Amino acid sequence: SMGQARALMGLSAQLDEELDFREGDVITIIGVPEPGWFEGELEGRRGIFPEGFVELLGPLR
């Protein structure tokens, strides 16, 4: 894990590789696949999402 982030708003996945989450969910960050995107894990599910949907809870490791 690289850190954690809290969802500022919900994301309804449009693509298979995207992660669904609700506002307030705390997501474990597991990677940065490309600039502007995070890869995360939530409730046993993994996927990517735009960084603008979340606030980091501390610096990434």
Rank of each mutant, 00 (worst) to 15 (best):
S1G: 13
S1N: 13
S1Y: 14
S1V: 14
M2W: 15
M2G: 04
M2E: 04
G3T: 05
G3W: 06
G3N: 13
G3K: 01
Q4S: 12
Q4R: 11
Q4M: 13
Q4Y: 12
Q4A: 06
A5R: 06
A5Q: 04
A5M: 01
A5T: 03
R6I: 11
A7Q: 04
A7Y: 04
A7L: 05
A7S: 02
L8V: 11
M9I: 10
G10N: 15
L11G: 02
L11H: 15
L11V: 08
L11M: 15
S12K: 12
S12I: 09
S12A: 10
A13V: 09
Q14D: 13
L15R: 15
L15Q: 15
L15D: 13
D16C: 07
E17Y: 13
E18H: 14
E18S: 10
E18Y: 12
L19Q: 00
L19E: 15
L19M: 03
L19R: 05
L19S: 01
D20P: 03
D20N: 13
D20H: 09
F21P: 03
R22D: 09
R22I: 11
E23C: 12
E23M: 01
D25E: 08
I27R: 08
I27A: 00
T28C: 00
T28K: 09
T28S: 14
T28G: 08
I29T: 02
I30G: 02
G31E: 00
G31I: 02
V32E: 11
V32C: 11
E34S: 12
G36H: 07
G36V: 04
W37F: 13
F38H: 14
F38C: 01
E39G: 02
E39R: 02
E39I: 11
E39F: 07
E41R: 07
L42M: 06
L42Y: 08
L42I: 13
E43S: 05
E43R: 11
E43I: 03
E43C: 12
R45Y: 01
R45F: 04
R45A: 10
R46Q: 05
R46H: 10
R46K: 10
G47N: 01
G47S: 06
I48T: 06
I48H: 08
F49H: 03
F49Y: 10
F49M: 04
E51K: 13
E51H: 07
V54R: 06
V54A: 12
V54H: 01
E55H: 06
E55W: 08
E55A: 01
L56K: 09
L56N: 00
G58M: 05
G58W: 07
P59C: 03
L60Y: 06
L60M: 13
L60A: 12
R61C: 10
R61Y: 12
R61M: 10
